[in-house]
Design a protein around this nucleic acid. Structure first.
Lengths: 135, 135
DNA sequence: TTGTACTGTAACAAAAAATATTACAGATGA
DNA sequence: TCATCTGTAATATTTTTTGTTACAGTACAA
């Protein structure tokens, strides 16, 4: 499992905390303790989804593009996730086995509904709620 | 993300389908299309949790140790999961940053409740229900 | 108009995690 | 007593994730 979700949430929390001030990838990376290039990549994704925006050039950096109360954690999760939460299944089970032949379809169905429950739970909380935890 | 959950579920489904007959790790591995040693390791874990049992020696193999209707998928997930579903967070964010200093605790809290929702959803379905999908 | 400090992005390297392989002792049945 | 399994360790390979280096392009500011 990669750490894109926690990294994204960390970035968003920092940007929220910055109250509109632009933050450099260098600074964000310093708080998270990862490479600035990874931060910039993650920010590209967050931008693509409309959560943040950024300014190039001297004095540039990034900032929240919408109100923290309008970003829910289910959306953040969705924006970040790539493969199935329950573990990617083998692409090529044995087609000669009646179970092997059908398992991927049924796993996909199972994952889809389980993931939906996860997302619904995360969606109950906004970035603003989450940031409220910090003092 | 490893594929322990789908592998475990695949094994359990095959054993259920076998209706009590012992199945060799070789056969199971053949349906899943992975290495038999991995199957045996996964079976050790499923055994430890009381889902299956196995017989050594010639003609040996494994079989379900309880009724499929008494194994729910939430339990299977719990038996198999190692790290956090939402991605493990960095162990060492910057302690000098007020956000970095506290984020891990809050991520853990968030994960715990989100994972709970996932498990509750999975628990609605038993192995018997899942196996019913196959024909 | 030139230097400085950023972003965006690609290409490559290193580290970590997952999976596969080999090997073999011990159990069990025929 | 042979053949066929499990259980398990040790090691190798592959894949995924993360880090690093590099540099073009943008914007501000002296």
């Amino acid at each position: 499992m990669n750490s894109r979700f926690p990294v994204s949430l960390h970035i968003l929390t920092l940007l929220h905390d910055a109250k509109g001030q632009v933050m450099s990838s260098e600074y964000l990376a310093g708080s998270i303790n990862i490479n600035p290039v990874l931060v910039r990549k993650e920010i590209m994704n967050l931008r693509k989804h409309g959560f943040v925006d950024s300014k190039e050039g001297k004095g540039g950096g990034s900032f929240l593009a919408k109100n923290a109360a309008d970003i829910n954690l289910g959306e953040v999760y969705t924006a970040v996730k790539s493969d199935h939460i329950l573990g990617q299944h083998k692409k090529d089970p044995n087609p000669k086995c009646p179970i092997g032949r059908q398992i991927n379809q049924h796993l996909t169905d199972l994952y889809t509904q389980a993931e939906q429950a996860l997302i619904e739970n995360l969606s109950k909380q906004t970035l603003a709620d989450f940031a409220l935890n910090f003092n």
